[in-house]
């Protein structure tokens, strides 16, 4: 049967990994290729690269990063951040990424999901949703622009809509849990995972190996993404997987 996936996320700015710390095995923690290889060797199932460059130059550099990573890595990887058009998707996917992740652009022009899915197949199109609980709404609200701007969209409805439009996967980040290290948002993850027929990647809140167990068993997530706990070596992909195996969760 299918295993649960562990996905480290790397923030890249102007071609350099930010937030990465100096691993003993690495000469240069800022080098996306070295970081990618490190996580691959640890047993990461996929990688996500989030381009947080603000400039046009930085975005061009991202294509070089994608190409260098693709040449090195024998596991799938997704690129997100600043993808606003079919042309942007073509650039990233033709340079060697396996999937693109759309967030704000998908909310602004939902048709972009369909265009991408028609051109490359749904399996290439990840829709990223930043979700925050809204007591007025009694549900979770979709935020865009890196979580700065609230929208009128309800997370569950938007997730269903994204599937209809051709999304192949949902990358779901809980803004309430993000950075807290107190665990993934189980309620949100389970609600979205049950609402859609495609895989859901849970993100935000990972603080230890138990949190991964919870999000897979109680949260019904298909994959879990984390950044800082891996970068700052609070735990490793290998340790999380060993723990999950002990708890009889199927991992690679």
């Amino acid at each position: 049967m299918l295993t649960k996936r562990i996905i480290p996320c790397l923030d890249v700015k102007d071609g350099r990994v930010v937030k990465g710390i100096q691993f003993v095995q690495l000469q240069d923690a800022g080098d996306p290729v070295q970081m990618a290889r490190f996580y691959d060797e640890q047993g990461a199932d996929e990688l996500v690269f989030l381009d947080i460059s603000a400039s046009v130059e930085g975005r061009k550099t991202m294509l070089e990063v994608v190409q260098a990573v693709a040449a090195e890595l024998a596991i799938p990887f997704t690129v997100g951040g600043g993808i606003n058009s079919l042309e942007d998707m073509k650039g990233i996917l033709r340079t060697g990424a396996d999937k693109v992740s759309l967030n704000t652009a998908a909310v602004k022009s939902p048709n972009l999901i369909t265009e991408g899915a028609n051109f490359f197949g749904s399996q290439c199109i990840v829709v990223a949703i930043d979700a925050k609980y809204d007591s007025e709404l009694g549900s979770w609200r979709v935020y865009t622009h890196g979580g700065r701007i609230p929208t009128d969209l309800d997370v569950i409805k938007w997730a269903r809509k994204a599937v209809e439009l051709g999304a192949g996967e949902i990358l779901l980040t809980s803004m309430d849990s993000d950075g807290e290290k107190s665990g993934f948002n189980i309620e949100l993850t389970r609600a979205v995972s049950k609402a859609v027929s495609i895989p859901v990647i849970a993100s935000g809140g990972a603080g230890c190996a138990e949190h991964f167990l919870d999000v897979f068993t109680k949260g019904k997530a298909d994959a879990a993404l984390a950044a800082s706990i891996f970068h700052y070596k609070e735990t490793s992909v290998a340790e999380v997987k060993t723990f999950l195996k002990e708890k009889e969760v199927l991992v690679r």
């Binding site: 299918l2 295993t3 996936r5 399996q123 192949g168 996967e169 495609i198 895989p199 298909d222 690679r252």
Partner: peptide, 12 residues
């Protein structure tokens, strides 16, 4: 029981 399609990920 329902299961997800596509079959996406690592399988033995």
């Amino acid at each position: 029981g329902r299961y997800k399609v596509p079959h996406m990920g690592w399988n033995q």
